[in-house]
Each structure stands twice: as C-alpha cells, then as structure tokens.
C-alpha cells in the first residue's frame, strides 16, 4: 500500500519525509533491539518511542516509515535526524493497537 493512501485513510500527520512510496508489512513495538531484528526493509514501524535512536533503527532497517502512535512528538534532534536521513515519520492520536487493527482491516 502507498504511504499517502494510508495517511489519507487514517488521517495521519506527516511529521517528516515523503509519502510517495509504498510499505509492505508492519512491525509494532518499542524495544530497539527487537525492532532492529524484526523490522524488515519497506515495513511500516509503529511505535511510541520518539527519541533519536528510533531514527537510527529506521535507517538501518530501511523501514518505509515510522508511525508514531498516541500523538507522541519527535524530540527536535530526532526530527532533524529524520530530515537528514530522509526517514518518513507519520503520527496519529490512535494507540498502537487501534492503528494495527485499522491497518489490518485495509490489508484484508
């Protein structure tokens, strides 16, 4: 699915990066070591972690985008890093669970 389509369907805010690409598969979780080994290239990664280390992991795993749940905000240095590394970051007021359920509905 296209990121821009996802943004539209879920009324996501685009925090950083471009949405003109697709994602394939989703990983949800906050522990960086877990994410590091489970986020696959082109995945959408849903998390409530918003520090700069999230950007490093997104970059290393080649996630398509990071989706921040519960309206958590990137700290300024993380936002800067996201722009610098061209990582797409989206956000939503919904919880991780609610986001997973909704995305699961589209996917089926």
């Amino acid at each position: 699915m296209n990121l821009s389509e996802l943004c539209e369907k879920l009324s996501l805010t685009v925090v950083a990066g471009d949405t003109g690409k697709t994602f394939d598969g989703v990983y949800a979780g906050d522990l960086l070591s877990r994410a590091m080994s489970h986020v696959e290239a082109d995945n959408l990664w849903i998390t409530i972690m918003s520090n700069i280390n999230v950007i490093a992991v997104a970059s290393l795993t080649e996630a398509s985008a990071v989706l921040l749940a519960e309206d958590v905000e990137l700290v300024p240095e993380a936002l800067e890093a996201a722009r610098d590394k061209e990582i797409t970051v989206l956000s939503s007021p919904l919880t991780v669970y609610e986001l997973c359920v909704k995305i699961g509905e589209f996917a089926s």
Binding site: D30, L31, L32, S33, R34, A35, S37, M49, N53, V54
Partner: peptide, 8 residues
C-alpha cells in the same frame, strides 16, 4: 529510551 531488551 528503548534500550535494555537484553537481546543485543
């Protein structure tokens, strides 16, 4: 910060 999963 998300570290300390003990999986490293």
């Amino acid at each position: 910060l998300g570290f300390g999963a003990g999986m490293g």
